[in-house]
Design a protein around this nucleic acid. Structure first.
Lengths: 246, 246
DNA sequence: TGCCATTTTTCCACTGGGTGGAATCAGAGA
DNA sequence: TCTCTGATTCCACCCAGTGGAAAAATGGCA
């Protein structure tokens, strides 16, 4: 479907990516989503079942396999970070009642590595664990954008759409100013009405060499003043995680 | 290196699997581990970087990429189960102080989906999140084996090695008897001195159709009598997770 | 700084694995 | 029983993948 320049690897991951919206797919559905002939799809899918990247149920439908989970646990930016942070996310959530989140930057988007939320509220959020969001749309994203390479910042600022932005960001210039502030204070406080949540705070997680490898953030439905008060606990947690990572 | 029958998909995942023991590998290390010519390795690895399955640092070394994490979160047997179970694992851990674990069966082994442990003890355990263990060596594995297809049970029983087994299992016949008991009681209580942990209990997590999709288990260094007392809480948690999964 | 060893990358001609259209088979409804 | 959709097998073509070899980059070491 997409204009991927051929290559077996690209096709293979094209197949896997086809499961983004559906948990299980039949052969022909899979072929249609990946934009490949059924036959080609069948052959690749069988190989993928062979290596455990796909599983095939008794009904013949495919779904993503456990082997991907095993590999993911070995991805440094995935589970390493997650394991170190989870206890602190738990603690922050219990302490504040807010959604506690850990995210990293992947190109011009953020990927949510982990989130600890109250059980019922979790389903309403569109920001799923493992899911992506544009950088300027989340507190964590802003933190990560602020310390991203210049070319990334430039393209994101250029493509900035004020209509889907945090309160107070009306132009690319606003965004740039905001990023400078974030770099200085190592802190974001942002408000926006989305997903039943009004405000969010974020801080970077710094590697020993001083670069932001991830962002820790809290989201809650509360006025800005109250959200401000969460910052000390958030910053302390970030320091603690950094310590544990060594 | 292993006798994988050629095919680009197999080679590709051979490359990814090479990261099992090392977080990052240079091109030549990667080629050596995967048993492929450097040139072939380079070409494949670049494609993998292109799709996000690998990442390449400034130093030229490769490591597993975030995209695998994103895919893993879509694997039904991975993150779906994990998300539903995590709060209960937390609760069980707090309640009992034991290691609380969730595992599934993959062929003749178990894969640990999630574990909640006290921070310091976690590092000593060889059973890593995302890692594998032979079915008869863990309480969760025994639960899963007890409800596995007959052919799986047969091969595992045939290959059974009493030297690395739970207390009281001295032969394949013992194991088979034990599995029958587990099926009847839907419960495992096992003791073994390993990893500083003396005893474990496990119960199955049943799908709506009644098959065991996962195992919930607790591990702690305590005499068997005390471990027995954990069973009610464990069973209740399993029922609660099953409810949530619907 | 210059030299050597190692690793990474580019180049290229060969060929066999990948391809996909078409035929066949399996299964669910009607 | 017939029909239709989806899954699977078959097979001839051919280009993407291959890997040896050369070139370039890297990194110690003196």
């Amino acid at each position: 479907m997409a204009g991927v320049r051929s290559g077996v690897v690209e096709r293979t991951f094209g197949l896997l990516d086809a499961f983004e919206s559906e948990r299980s797919l039949s052969l022909s559905e899979l072929a249609a989503r990946a934009g490949l002939p059924v036959n080609t799809t069948l052959r690749l899918a069988r190989s993928l079942v062979g290596v455990g990247a796909l599983e095939r149920g008794d009904d013949g439908r495919f779904s993503l396999g456990l082997h991907l989970y095993e590999l993911a646990t070995l991805a440094p930016r995935g589970v390493g970070l997650r394991g170190a942070s989870l206890p602190y996310l738990q603690h922050l959530h219990e302490l504040t009642g807010a959604h506690a989140m850990l995210s990293v930057r992947e190109g011009r988007q953020t990927v949510l590595i982990e989130r600890v939320s109250a059980p019922r509220t979790a389903r309403r959020l569109e920001y799923r664990v493992g899911g992506r969001m544009p950088l300027p749309l989340t507190a964590g994203g802003l933190v990560l954008l602020a310390s991203a390479p210049a070319d990334i910042q430039d393209t994101v600022v250029a493509a900035f759409d004020p209509r889907r932005a945090m309160d107070g960001l009306r132009s690319g210039a606003d965004l740039r100013r905001s990023l400078a502030t974030i770099r200085r204070t190592r802190t974001v406080v942002a408000t926006r009405k989305l997903d039943q949540v009004r405000a969010a705070v974020g801080v970077p997680l710094l590697s020993p060499t001083g670069e932001a490898v991830a962002a820790l953030s809290l989201m809650m439905d509360a006025p800005r003043r109250r959200v401000d008060s969460l910052l000390p606990a958030l910053a302390m947690s970030a320091r603690a995680i950094e310590r544990d990572l060594r």
